[in-house]
């Protein structure tokens, strides 16, 4: 698992690659906090290269969304596909976090 941070006009994009499970979810949380820092105006998590996530990783996504929400930083997800998308939907995360089809759509919405 790897988190890569990119900046696009004040929007921070965190690209998550690989697998997030109970054995590396703490590392996932640490890498996300490092990527987001304290000054991001809006955050997009690009999950296009995320091959697997279990409840341990969903817990981290929820924690991060809550923390950013308290700081009034918008967060959205993009590029989910296949079973990963199902897992987010079954968890009801599509009701509490904006999910966009691709990065372009997520950046357009975040920039507004």
């Amino acid at each position: 698992m790897n988190v890569q941070a990119e900046h696009h006009d004040g929007v921070l994009v965190a690209k998550v690659e690989g697998r997030v499970d109970s054995s590396n979810s703490q590392d996932f949380e640490r890498q996300l906090h490092e990527a987001f820092g304290d000054d991001a105006g809006a955050v997009v998590m690009d999950l296009g290269q995320l091959a697997y996530i279990s409840s341990a990783g969903l817990r981290v996504v929820l924690l991060v969304a809550k923390t950013l929400g308290q700081r009034n930083v918008g967060i959205s997800l993009c590029s989910l596909s296949g079973p990963v998308q199902s897992v987010f939907e079954i968890s009801g995360f599509n009701r509490i976090i904006q999910i966009h089809e691709n990065r372009t759509a997520a950046l357009a919405a975040a920039g507004k």
Partner: peptide, 24 residues
């Protein structure tokens, strides 16, 4: 059983694992 309808602020951390297994 997790409340998958709750809004972000009220959403409990955890409890999702067994729910995912039941559905998948």
């Amino acid at each position: 059983e997790p409340d998958t309808e709750a809004v972000l602020e009220d959403r409990k951390i955890g409890g999702l694992g067994v729910h995912l297994v039941r559905v998948l």
